[in-house]
Design a binder for these strands. Structure first.
Lengths: 206, 206
DNA sequence: CTGGATCCGGGAAGATACTG
DNA sequence: CAGTATCTTCCCGGATCCAG
């Protein structure tokens, strides 16, 4: 992107992250952790591969991401946020918050990935039973999903981990999940399937 | 801007405000209040007039800004943020915060407007004498500047108002102001001129 | 002067094919 | 898997012009 050439904190920030796709790449790395090139492509439907390569180069020279090699047997080049890149969490959070009302408009032909949902879940969910033992509510599956962990009044949202045994696994069309976590429908809603403990799900609902 | 076509809160937010110049127009209206077309041009050096007209049309149909006519004798069409547009304050604040370290790099040939400084001042300044009567510190002038009001422990930053009589008026090159309000130099620094009460200035410094 | 509209060139973004 | 190469499209920037 061309610079705005303004001696202004915000203009200079946008010089670094205002390019198309850049902040969505940050979203992917914030929600998914270190990713391979093809992981990013899967999480960014619609991006051209050359554009993703361009952006990653730019973000690397702006010190927002780093590359490192994971040793064999699962050798791969991983891309991760630097500390400076992770500091964009505040910007991402506010964009997610401001955009939340736009999710009431139905998805139509829009693409959907379950892990995109991890960001709003962090402030939508509540632990309504802080005294009880921790529970894990899984949305989606290991391939694309997230685990909501409620423990001692705190809510954490992570990518699905094979090590965690979820107390409840929720399956539903994306717009129903939006309604569920914004309190417009209950855990018994049409089109919503809870595998496991419904109580665990209800514990984290707002 | 082309839509990302993703059912994701952040992607949908960026569909509305991810266009070049859009968030800087929000910056102008947040710091300056209602503006005429030409006020916006002055605060957005580098923008082409057709592009500004395009953006304003898009933002109006996205209900981020409204137009209204101020009656004679000072007849003019004013542009202002809607409530929804003002809600972008959080996004703007986080971008300003993230971009703050980039201001240590000198301005070079970058344009500068004093009122851009109003945004970071809101969280950089402190009222270090909450018991004392209110003071007003002015940066720049009526044409382009801002008033820092310290009152009862609170800090407010507004566009300069002809009604307010500043206790101190500060004049300095932009990079010196950055150093001053980030605590790297004192009110006695080289290149810095305080007209009025130095104590008033020191009251609001971090 | 203000508030644009119009035209045009360059460059970024997008689509697709291909490669080590 | 992790990109590169190429071509097309269209957004942005710059200049100019114009009506009220």
């Amino acid at each position: 992107m061309r610079s705005y050439d303004q001696y202004c904190s915000m203009a200079r920030a946008l010089d670094r992250v205002g390019d198309r796709w850049t902040l969505l790449i940050v979203r992917e790395l914030l929600t998914q952790g270190p990713c391979r090139f093809s992981d990013l492509r899967r999480g960014l439907p619609g991006i051209a591969s050359n554009l993703l390569a361009d952006r990653l180069r730019e973000m690397e020279s702006a010190a927002l991401v780093t590359r490192y090699d994971r040793p064999p047997p699962v050798a791969a080049t991983l891309i991760d946020l630097t500390e400076r890149g992770r500091d964009l969490g505040g910007v991402v959070r506010e964009l997610v918050r401001w955009g939340a009302p736009l999710m009431l408009e139905p998805p139509g032909d829009d693409e959907f990935r379950m892990h995109w949902f991890a960001l709003p879940l962090r402030y939508l969910c509540r632990d309504r039973a802080p005294e009880e033992p921790a529970v894990v509510v899984r949305l989606g599956d290991l391939h694309d999903g997230c685990d909501i962990v409620a423990e001692q009044g705190r809510i954490d949202v992570h990518p699905c981990s094979p090590d965690r045994r979820p107390d409840a696994t929720v399956t539903a069309p994306p717009e129903v999940l939006v309604q569920l976590f914004t309190g417009q429908v209950t855990a018994q809603a049409e089109g919503l399937v809870v595998d496991g403990s419904t109580a665990a799900l209800e514990r984290v609902l707002p």
